[in-house]
Simulated scan of single mutants.
Amino acid sequence: MDQGQALIKMRLGDQEIYEEVLQEMLPALYRLAYGITQDSMEAQDAVQDALVSMVRRLGDFQERSSLATWLYRITVNASLDKLRSRRRRGETIPIEEFLPLFTEEGRYAQEVVDWSDAPLERLLSSEAAERIRQAIASLPEEQRVVLVMKDVEDFSLSEISRTLELSLPAVKSRLHRARLALRGVLASYFKERRGSAVTSPKKVKKHKHTCRELVELLCDYLEGDLPQEEKEELDRHMRECPPCMAFLNTYKKTSQICKSLRPEDIPQEMIKRLEAFLQSSKSPSR
């Protein structure tokens, strides 16, 4: 059944269609809400609020986007409402101090430790996971949402752009800054428990980009959005600059670790709760 037919049936109050939508989309909606709120009960409440909003506003849906994109957008907004209502500031850590620092020449002002080859069990330890959850909870809202959608839930950049109604450059900018902050948190954590820093060669070769400029291009580099000539230049830079190669390795690993934070199971009480809600919605279009 196509979207148009589904919408007609939903507006007529067809209970089976609502149940199909719930079955198909609930896991993704819950994971998205959980990633943003970092709290199971608040995620459940956010998803229910999103479904209430869907039922009440279905008559206003103009199909400029897909039903799924619209539901994701409503869920993001409901999740952010939960965040704004609590603001438990004592649970956050200062993110700014974990962003990379550079000298006036564009070189690293701090040591770069390559912890990307640490054993997987250490990278995914409960302590490390808790540090990164705290870091995600400390991110500004706009960065947190994009990071969760891309690196936890594996949305494409174009899907995120459509859902949040942002330009692709804006999505990439928010994602990149969030990754930099989380990478810094993990770098601090593993530096306390791991070996020495990667050092720059004594004789620095001249490159088109400074290390600072290379770091700013990493999101485009990993997404394959750089012109081939520029990508090759960055590859050469990283081969000849161990700190930049270490930074790339840990930047990529940070993105991979985020996926481990994805909740596997939806609480059964949530499924029952939402099924009861949909069954009580006799007139969805009102």
Results as ranks from 00 to 15, higher is better:
Gln48Glu: 13
Gln48Gly: 07
Asp49Ile: 06
Ala50Cys: 05
Ala50Leu: 03
Leu51Asn: 00
Leu51Val: 03
Val52Phe: 07
Val52Ala: 08
Val52Met: 08
Ser53Thr: 11
Ser53Ala: 14
Met54Arg: 03
Met54Cys: 10
Val55Lys: 03
Leu58Cys: 05
Gly59Ala: 15
Asp60Glu: 15
Asp60Phe: 13
Phe61Gly: 00
Gln62Gly: 14
Glu63Trp: 07
Arg64Leu: 12
Arg64Val: 12
Ser65Trp: 08
Ser65Tyr: 10
Ser66Lys: 06
Ser66Ile: 06
Leu67Arg: 02
Ala68Val: 11
Ala68Ile: 10
Leu71Thr: 03
Tyr72Leu: 06
Tyr72Phe: 12
Arg73Thr: 08
Ile74Gln: 06
Ile74Pro: 00
Thr75Gln: 02
Val76Pro: 00
Asn77Phe: 12
Ala78Tyr: 01
Ala78Phe: 05
Ser79Cys: 07
Leu80Asn: 06
Asp81Val: 14
Arg84Gln: 15
Arg84Phe: 14
Arg84Met: 11
Ser85Glu: 13
Arg86Glu: 12
Arg87Gly: 13
Arg89Val: 13
Arg89His: 15
Gly90Ile: 11
Gly90Met: 12
Gly90Asp: 14
Pro94Ala: 07
Glu96Ile: 10
Glu97Ile: 12
Leu101Ser: 12
Leu101His: 14
Thr103His: 04
Glu104Tyr: 09
Glu105Ser: 15
Glu105Pro: 05
Glu105His: 08
Glu105Arg: 09
Arg107Asn: 09
Tyr108Val: 03
Ala109Cys: 10
Glu111Thr: 04
Val112Ile: 09
Val113Gly: 03
Ser116Trp: 00
Asp117Cys: 13
Ala118Trp: 08
Pro119Ile: 08
Pro119Leu: 09
Pro119Asp: 13
Leu120Asp: 13
Leu120Gly: 10
Leu120Cys: 11
Arg122Pro: 09
Leu124Pro: 05
Ser126Val: 15
Ser126Tyr: 09
Glu127Thr: 15
Glu127Cys: 10
Ala128Gln: 01
Ala129His: 12
Ala129Trp: 08
Ala129Leu: 15
Glu130Pro: 07
Glu130Phe: 15
Glu130Met: 14
Ile132Arg: 04
Arg133Asn: 11
Gln134His: 10
Gln134Pro: 06
Ala135Asn: 02
Ile136Val: 11
Ile136Lys: 01
Ala137Tyr: 10
Pro140Arg: 05
Glu141Tyr: 06
Gln143Gly: 07
Gln143Val: 05
Gln143Trp: 06
Arg144Ile: 07
Arg144Glu: 05
Arg144Gly: 03
Val146Leu: 03
Val146Ala: 00
Val148Arg: 00
Met149Asp: 00
Lys150Trp: 02
Asp151Cys: 04
Asp151Ser: 06
Val152Ala: 02
Asp154Lys: 14
Asp154Ser: 14
Leu157Ile: 13
Leu157Val: 11
Ser158Phe: 13
Ser158Asn: 10
Glu159Arg: 12
Ile160Met: 02
Ser161Ile: 02
Arg162Lys: 11
Thr163His: 01
Leu164Val: 03
Leu164Tyr: 01
Leu164Cys: 03
Glu165Leu: 11
Leu166Asp: 01
Leu166His: 04
Ser167Val: 05
Leu168Tyr: 06
Pro169Asn: 05
Ala170Gly: 11
Ala170Leu: 09
Ala170Asn: 10
Lys172Leu: 07
Lys172Thr: 03
Ser173His: 10
